[in-house]
Amino acid sequence: MLRYTVSRLISAVPTLALVLVLAFSLVHAAPGGPFDTERALPPETEARLNEAYGLDQPFWVQFGNYVGGLLRGDFGPSYRYPQSTVGELIADAFPVSATLGLLALVVGAGLGIAIGIVAALRQNSVLDHVLMSVSMTGISVPGFVIAPLAVLLFAVTLRWLPASGLQTPAHYVLPVFALALPMLAYVARLMRASLVETLKSQFIRTARSQGLSSRTLVFRYAMKPALIPVVSYLGPAIAAVLTGSVVIEQIFNIPGIGRLFIQGALNRDYTLVMGLVVLYSSLLIVMNLIVDLLYGVLDPRVRY
């Protein structure tokens, strides 16, 4: 298991390197630089700035410097916010996104699994059809449609909840709901489908023939295999939800990672954008590794 983990982490290195090269060259190939503003700077100022940030160096030197910094845990300075480093910006924004994301994860995965189980046990009942149609809608309708409509209804019209910011617990309700809904819907459908499939399998029929209770059948016998597809979906989904949603943070005016990324991209804040790409990629790799290790926990036939 340890050997597997280590070898997986080693094999993540080329992936991460590819991501870095891709992102770095994209940013550099883009026309325009971080100091192009509406008001053109005097050429000598710009040259000085470029020199100060090492932007006058050749591509590979810049890349080498950047990677070297990364290895020391240094994400570099932000071009747009000269008073703070990228590390500081991320450290400020990440807890915000992560809190929101964790709440959404608990709501989305928890409720989704519960709804999926209920629907599977009441397969083809009216309740099942209703739950599944609602979750299909939840999957189809994008967050940026749900969120404004929810704001329109609960904040503007009914005035039950605040529309933006994160000052009180009540502020969390709408963004968490908007963030959790697609996950909830997807997990519910996935859970229902895989539980229904598992309950059809021969070993469940055998267990029934032995007179075991349906609680045992569902929770002791069928739950583990049924959870496998859900787990493999949740891995990348967790990575996404922890790093915040660009749209939700935009709509609810939340100072999280997603908004930071959009601003960074729009402002051509190279180091900020790079830092966020590195953060997300590493998170994704780690989550995928955790998913694969979980397979081993869930399925005894998997050996590392």
Partner: peptide, 9 residues
């Protein structure tokens, strides 16, 4: 393993 949404943006 590449964050595609980021790249598209």
């Amino acid at each position: 393993a590449i964050p595609f949404m980021f790249f598209v943006i």
